[in-house]
Design a protein around this nucleic acid. Structure first.
Length: 407
RNA sequence: ACCGUUACUUGAA
């Protein structure tokens, strides 16, 4: 759970009372740091372990190499593991994990041929390639190579007598969903059970999301109903995706209906749910109702977040209520949310609209001086405004600044 | 006993 200080204390306590931590203890500990993205302490623990007479084992190296891969430090990961890969004599199951870690790392960083290198190396050494290795390969191929080659290896996998697992199917489903091939994805969802693998929450989540993204919200809703039928309690995310889907096709009625159903099965709306509704209200320009929704969410114990505030600032600016927007902005800052590009952009837009160009420009300067990564949108807003009020000289000056930014 | 694989929702233009 990331309580690393606590774990650290426990290890020290173990040492003190003479109950020596073993390699599994340290491995778990190191993994904790890795999950926290804290390589510095992970390595410290690694050395600490060695200094206390426990030799790091393969698992230790795998854990660290895996973390290095995730940070994109492939070189270091390879250097760390290459020694352990060469020991042909030792139990091979660990070698296969190390190779899989490196193969996955390469694929995820776009180094396809290097990844393949690890694959063929495993084959050459006649290691028993397992499900995970195949899954990593398939995922990597879908990611970098399109589906043809991936399916070739999928067939190979079947032929070698390996049974695809839920990861395998989900990898395929994910790829199909991303390409919008939802009929095919649904077909796999329907057929995987007959292959002895039941779809899990991930399978449903991906397809439901895919369906919503491609505008087929009703079909998504059908799957949600099916999940309820087989009493797989859908996670809040799934409800939110569907509510958002209805919101996007301006079907407010269905969106509200789903929310009620969600409440009825005992799932409480979270910040996403509220923000989805907020977005619907904002898009229709109903600033009164938006402000009302803010009150309502606070009453039910959900605090507005940066996204909520940005939307509220946007809707009030659009309604010409710059003063109200500023008040909301103030509240947001007081609550500890730092304004981001969107906050500034909304306010700048508000000022521009209201004809308060000086204030807009001041805000713009303020934003540029801050840490915030400024994108092209504020420029667009200014250019549009300047041109509309015949300030072509200023428009041009701004354009030149813009060019400078990109040199 | 400890290591590797799939998915992850909301905001400006």
């Amino acid at each position: 759970v990331g309580r690393m200080e606590k774990a650290d204390c426990l290890i020290r306590e173990m040492l003190e009372v003479g109950c020596s931590p073993n390699s599994a203890t340290y491995n778990t500990f190191i993994k904790g740091y890795c999950l926290n993205n804290d390589m510095e302490n992970a390595l410290r623990a690694f050395y600490f372990m060695a200094n206390h007479g426990i030799r790091p084992n393969r698992i230790t190296y795998n854990i660290i190499a895996h973390a290095l891969c995730k940070k994109g430090l492939l070189r270091d990961a390879k250097r760390l593991l290459i020694g352990t890969l060469d020991e042909e004599c030792s139990p091979c199951s660990s070698n296969i994990i190390a190779s899989t870690i490196l193969m996955d790392g390469c694929f995820k960083n776009g180094k396809v041929s290097e990844a393949f290198g690890f694959w063929w190396e495993m084959i050459r050494r006649e290691l028993e390639v397992d499900n995970v290795a195949y899954n990593v390969l398939l995922h990597g191929l879908f990611l970098n190579h399109g589906s043809k080659l991936a399916f070739v290896f999928f067939c190979k996998m079947l032929k070698s007598g390996m049974l695809p697992d839920v990861f395998t199917y989900n990898t395929i489903i994910s790829h199909l969903c991303k390409r919008g091939e939802l009929d095919e994805a649904c077909r796999i969802l329907a057929n995987m059970s007959s292959m002895g693998v039941s779809p899990d929450h991930v399978s449903y989540k991906m397809i439901i999301q895919g369906l919503c993204m491609y505008g087929n919200v009703f079909r998504a809703k059908g799957l949600l109903d099916f999940m309820l039928e087989v009493s797989m309690q859908p996670q809040p995310l799934i409800w939110n995706v569907i509510i958002d889907g209805f919101g996007r096709c301006k079907d407010l009625e269905s969106a509200s209906y789903i929310t009620e159903q969600m409440l009825a099965v005992g799932v409480s709306p979270n910040i996403y749910t509220y923000n989805v509704f907020m977005c619907i209200l904002v898009k229709s320009g109903s600033f009164r109702r938006a402000l009302f929704l803010k009150e309502e969410m606070q009453r039910s114990g959900v605090s507005p977040d940066q996204v909520t505030y940005n939307m509220l600032i946007g809707v009030t600016c659009n309604a010409g209520l710059t003063k109200v927007a500023l008040k909301i902005h103030e509240e947001m800052v007081n609550r500890g949310y730092d304004p981001d590009v969107l906050t500034y952009t909304e306010l700048i837009k508000g000022y521009c609209w209201a004809g308060q160009l000086i204030e807009a420009e001041e805000l713009f300067v303020e934003m540029c001086r801050s840490e915030i990564q400024v994108d092209h949108v504020p420029f667009q807003i200014f250019l549009k405004k300047y041109c509309s009020v015949d300030e072509h000289k200023r428009a041009f000056a701004l354009y030149e600044t813009l060019l400078e930014c990109y040199v």
